[in-house]
């Protein structure tokens, strides 16, 4: 088996065990409120890993990815709601879209497809820029899409948003897509694209001198991550049954980036660990916030957590390593200790 396939399978399998266990336990005994937390956790994995597949490999942070999540979510909303509802609410739709609806899987795939297409077009311009300028230009992307979602009445229902989306994302569907996202992002990271990008992340001049077309590689990563983001948005819409422009703007960008950075931007495992840690912190503090009555406490706690983690561990909890590398090191250290003890 090739290195790529072996690492992808191992890296996915290590997370598959606990995630599957969580899904089964939640399915058996979780209250509706806890179930929401679990399903949104799985969907967040898809979203955070989508951002990781671009930012982690290129070293360029993106504030604009929620635009592609929004695209996926609106696409899924428009193609799944009952045609009767569309006639009243979404008058701007072309007739073939107004008269038909599709099921869960086609909606998810369409979300990913359109997310990828939109990202691909924007990426032509964005990936030509220097690293810092591109990061800031992604902010512009987020604002452009917010304005469009907020005002395109006939298609998005503007500020009101679209409600009445069938709730089709089950905990197991979310689990499957989370695992697919882990596998896809790990495979990309280990592929010739990911390898070259990680080289360019550390030294773009050296990477170009070796023959890497850094602009094109970044475009590939950007488009792929836009597609995965679209998938995540489609899953999200079909679980939370209503979409509106505010859900794809800055306030929602912050927790996703927090997850990525706290866990460790550079690796897929960092993304997974970050989603887990921040989800728990969010839930614990949110429950306290209701008791204590300080508005915004959750955001304050997460912000402080980010500042502390970045100060102590600039590469996040995982410190730039994949979980299988950590395990291999631990095994190596134990072997050394045992050998040392037997002498």
């Amino acid at each position: 088996m090739s290195t790529l396939a072996r690492r992808t399978l191992l890296g996915t399998a290590i997370f598959a065990v606990p995630l599957t266990a969580i899904a089964f336990v939640a399915n058996a005994m979780a209250s509706p409120a806890d179930m929401r937390v679990v399903v949104n956790f799985m969907i967040s994995l898809v979203l955070v890993l989508a951002i990781q597949s671009f930012s982690g490999n290129t070293g360029i942070i993106s504030f604009g990815h929620l635009a592609f999540m929004g695209v996926g979510a609106y696409v899924a909303a428009i193609v799944t709601i009952d045609p009767v509802l569309k006639q009243d609410d979404l008058a701007g739709l072309p007739s073939f879209m107004a008269e038909h609806s599709v099921g869960f899987i086609p909606a998810v795939l369409l979300g990913g497809l359109v997310g990828g297409l939109v990202a691909g077009v924007l990426g032509v311009v964005l990936t030509r820029m220097r690293e810092g300028a591109m990061a800031m230009a992604t902010i512009g992307v987020l604002v452009i899409f917010f304005v469009v979602f907020d005002n395109w009445e006939g298609i998005t229902r503007g500020n009101t948003g679209i409600a009445g989306i069938p709730q089709s994302t089950t905990v197991f569907a979310a689990l499957v897509f989370a695992l697919l996202a882990i596998a896809a992002c790990r495979a990309f990271c280990e592929s010739r694209f990911g390898l070259q990008l990680r080289g360019s992340r550390s030294d773009p001049v050296a990477a170009e001198a070796l023959g890497s077309n850094v602009v094109r590689l970044r475009w590939v990563a950007w488009t792929l991550s836009g597609a995965i983001m679209g998938v995540g948005g489609a899953l999200w819409a079909q679980y939370n049954i209503a979409v509106g422009p505010q859900q794809f703007f800055f306030e929602q960008t912050f927790p996703l980036l927090a997850m990525l950075v706290v866990g460790g931007l550079a690796t897929v495992s960092g993304g997974v660990v970050g989603v887990f840690v921040i989800t728990i912190v969010f839930e614990v503090v949110r429950r306290m916030e209701d008791d204590i009555g300080i508005p915004g406490l959750t955001q304050i706690v997460v912000a402080v957590l980010i500042l502390v983690v970045l100060n102590r561990r600039p590469n996040g909890i995982m410190g730039g390593l994949e979980v299988d590398q950590v395990l291999a090191r631990l095994r190596g250290r134990r072997r050394v200790e045992q050998e040392g003890g037997s002498q």
């Binding site: 390898l195 070259q196 990680r198 080289g199 030294d203 050296a206 990477a207 070796l210 023959g211 550079a266």
Partner: peptide, 27 residues
């Protein structure tokens, strides 16, 4: 055309093996 740099420009956070691997896959 391949080259090295006067001020070393390795991919600092990657292993020796992966540095060389990038050189291979890039071409």
């Amino acid at each position: 055309v391949g080259r090295t740099f006067q001020q070393i420009r390795l991919f600092d956070d990657m292993t020796v093996h992966d540095n060389v691997l990038v050189g291979a896959v890039a071409r």
